[in-house]
Amino acid sequence: MRKSKSLTQKALTELGRDKLAMISFAIIAAYILIALLIQTNLLNLPIHDTVGESYEKPSWAHILGTDIFGRDVFIRVIYGVKISMSIGFITTLIAVPIGIVLGALAGFFGGRIDDFIVWIYSTFSSIPYLLLLLALALVLGKGIFSVYIALGVTSWVGICRVVRGEFIKYRERDYVTAAHALGAGPLRIIFRHILPNVLPLIFINASLLFVSAIKAEVILSYIGVGVQGKPSWGNMISDAKLELVGRGVYWQFLGATCAMFIIVLAFNIFSDALRDSFDPRISNKTKER
């Protein structure tokens, strides 16, 4: 007898048929691969080497020209992949667990715990996001670790809200009652029974969070509280403010903007496709009303 497909399998098959989503996924995978190769030193990029004159125009030898110190811009853009991916990844790694745990506790237990957690996140969401982010990056000191922490601490609210909402919805379901009756403890119900149902939504939100972290890095770098001494896309884009005027040096700006555009676009398209294939609203809509 053939086993019928689960909803997740169905959704994944659907996702696999979506060509655009698969191309996006390949791009994301390629960026991750580049980041990993640089991180593990398997790909050793000479980001500090002088290869030519200051501000050489793009040519076949240096397809994105050189920067103020005569360093190859293309190599620095590629190195930026690692910085951006690590910012996206570590921010997500900090924010998502906080969001999941707080959201799950609030939604599952309700009552005082819920009130307390809702209080925390409504406090965070009423503070203007960019101001809090900049302030936090400032007081933590310049550098990439501050960026990780500032972004991580400010971006869990969205996930927490979503997870809480889902847990409130699921805690009344029959399968949860059944698990209670079988003697499962609250932690087991939260993590083994309910959480898997919320995972697709968490993935979607995590990928949006990843994107907003990459975008926020640019702003932090421009304000001067971002990554220091390393070629991040944010630094390269903010340098353009000085390079364009008078000199017309556009290649650092163009290279970093395009590299960022491609990965952010891929994430946007992929998370959209993920939502379309997992969102039960699209198929259940008529039933509910």
Binding site: K215, V218, I219, Y222, W233, G234, I237, S238, A240, K241, L244, V245, F253, T257, M260, F261, V264, L265, N268, I269, D272
Partner: peptide, 18 residues
């Protein structure tokens, strides 16, 4: 709109102003 969202705010500002 998806493409537009994927460009950094700073890129819009710098390119627009320049």
């Amino acid at each position: 709109s998806v493409a537009g969202m994927s460009v950094s705010v700073l890129a819009y500002i710098i390119a627009g102003q320049y």
